[in-house]
């Protein structure tokens, strides 16, 4: 039996009428991969500072996330505790090893903290996003020990911290942040773009929240 890979490449090249050795074609491909040109960037996200924060929050809320802004990282634990209390949720949270999270003054609250990935028995999780996209109200999460991927999906309530200075206008700008953090062509195992809480319209064509992922998504924007 012949090799499937070789057959498929041969078929593609026969259909396209190419050999695969054309220098110009190889150059075009290498150039596009190296430059990664941006295409059409919608105007909507191209706003700065306060306007960008406002756009991000409005877009996230339009897809049923809730948001709150705090002045500094020191205010985050209290904001988390308030959110849980206001929603009658138990005062327990799970988080990863992200230093930006662990350095916060959690001791000032009565919250019970657990660390590491979720085994499915956690109600509430707190994660720190790499950045967030104003155009669509989207959080950008990267996998790793800092923010385990299971925290994005298993707990019922997901609370995500975003620094206002990490807000970007569009997805292309988010990729720049990923490349700065990991290097061009290098990727964390997973990049999760999250836009609102989990939902499904598969029963009776009606959109219902809380399908398999979190039933609620709360975003805390840190301004300082």
């Amino acid at each position: 039996m012949t090799d499937a890979r070789a057959d498929i490449f041969a078929n593609i090249r026969r259909s396209l009428g190419v050999t695969g050795n054309e220098a110009t074609r190889r150059m075009e491909v290498a150039d596009r991969v190296a430059r990664a040109p941006r295409g059409v960037i919608p105007q909507r996200g191209q706003v700065a500072d306060e306007a960008r924060v406002a756009l991000f929050r409005a877009q996230a809320e339009a897809v049923q996330a809730t948001t709150v802004a705090v002045d500094s990282v020191a205010d985050v634990p209290a904001a988390v505790a308030n959110y849980l209390r206001d929603h009658n949720l138990p005062a327990t949270i799970r988080m990863g090893g992200d230093l930006r999270l662990t350095a916060m003054p959690w001791g000032d609250t009565a919250l019970e903290l657990k660390h590491g990935p979720s085994d499915g028995n956690d109600l509430n999780a707190v994660s720190h996003s790499l950045c967030a996209i104003a155009e669509t109200g989207t959080l950008v999460m990267t996998a790793g020990p800092d923010n385990p991927t299971t925290l994005n999906f298993l707990p019922d309530n997901h609370i995500v911290i975003v620094n206002a200075r990490d807000l970007v206008g569009d997805m292309e700008e988010a990729w720049s942040k990923v490349r700065i953090a990991y290097g061009k062509g290098e990727m964390p195992r997973v990049v999760n773009f999250i836009t609102g809480p989990s939902r499904s319209a598969d029963i009776g064509q009606t959109m219902l929240l809380g399908a398999h992922g979190p039933r609620s998504l709360h975003v805390i924007v840190v301004k300082g």
Partner: peptide
């Protein structure tokens, strides 16, 4: 008619040495 679906997930390879899940 959504601007973005809720989850857009970009996956690259298996769990890394330091990854706690995946």
């Amino acid at each position: 008619g959504q601007e973005m679906s809720v989850y857009t997930t970009v996956s690259t390879g298996p769990r890394r040495q330091s990854d706690p899940d995946g």
